[in-house]
Design a protein around this nucleic acid. Structure first.
Lengths: 156, 156
DNA sequence: TGCGATTTAATCGTACGCGATATATATGAC
DNA sequence: GTCATATATATCGCGTACGATTAAATCGCA
């Protein structure tokens, strides 16, 4: 693969293209999350933001974006929707007024417990062995590292 | 994983969540495709539709949707944009007027050659060994099968 | 100190993506 | 043949997503 060549039979058949795999799998995962999250009043991207905040509260919009690979043009409206739902508050940083810090409300913190079953349900739907789970996690991480190096390469 | 339990340390850390992996990797792949496809005047989803049509021309909207896991609410406007760009034509099926058949124009067919470098460029950016490539393809396929069985399960 | 360059969010326009709904066509029971 | 049902696509409203731009705050450095 490092020579930029694909083996015969993999070329252009959508089912054999990794981009298609990721596209379709990402889709299918969304379908699994959707009913679980709608009970909590969250969309899938909103859930990811909450997960990141549950891990560390009070992050800036930029820090959330770095974690989730999202631009402010996506995050700002998304966060405002979560704010209007009472899950969090937006407040300018005291030291640096350019930054907006996102802090969970009590309701936002409480949602972590109410969502405790979600990872287990999803993991069960995955139906992967622990070995495959870890292997997949590793390979996707490696893939992302390679892709991001490539994305940034032309800018240097 | 089949017992719905995650090993300690994987719980809720976004970097360890497979949904996050897929989300972020899907993202990163989009970033790789974007500059390549913008030269061709295509978005990433539009490219996927074209790939499916290059494989077999004249499919119905429903068949395209089945391949790409997309509803008509997504496909209809997307296909209309491709039509207005002169890449394809939409025509009601003679036998069944409910169906819309999508046929490539000469320009749409010609685009296949102009896009010939894309899969190789992307594969190179992936930076995976052939072994990892095939393994990842297999695991994502297995994962999708499991997820789709789960998605349809409640409906039965 | 002053002022241009950089950083950080927000805004805008376009394009997905989906659930719910609408509309037109086809099918089947009788 | 008629009407209920099913199927195929289209439409609508909402919520992402992103590139380009804007505006405000901060920083760097002469």
């Amino acid at each position: 693969m490092t020579d930029g060549k694909l083996p015969d039979g993999f070329r252009l058949r959508p089912e054999s293209m990794l981009c298609f795999d990721l596209y379709a799998t990402h889709h299918a995962v969304g379908q699994i999350y959707q009913p679980l999250l709608s009970e909590l009043g969250l969309t899938y991207p909103q859930y990811l933001v909450m997960v990141v905040l549950w891990e560390q509260d009070g992050q800036t919009v930029g820090e959330l974006g770095a974690r989730l690979d999202l631009a402010s043009s996506t995050l700002t409206p998304l966060i405002k929707r979560l704010e209007s739902q009472g899950m969090l508050e937006r407040k300018r940083d005291d030291k640096d007024e350019r930054k907006v810090r996102v802090k969970l409300t009590a309701a936002g913190q409480a949602l972590e417990d109410r969502s405790g079953h979600v990872p287990g349900c999803v993991a069960q739907a995955f139906g992967l062995s622990l070995e495959d789970f870890v292997k997949l996690h590793e390979m996707l991480g490696k893939l992302r590292t390679s892709l991001k190096a490539k994305t940034g390469a032309e800018e240097a």
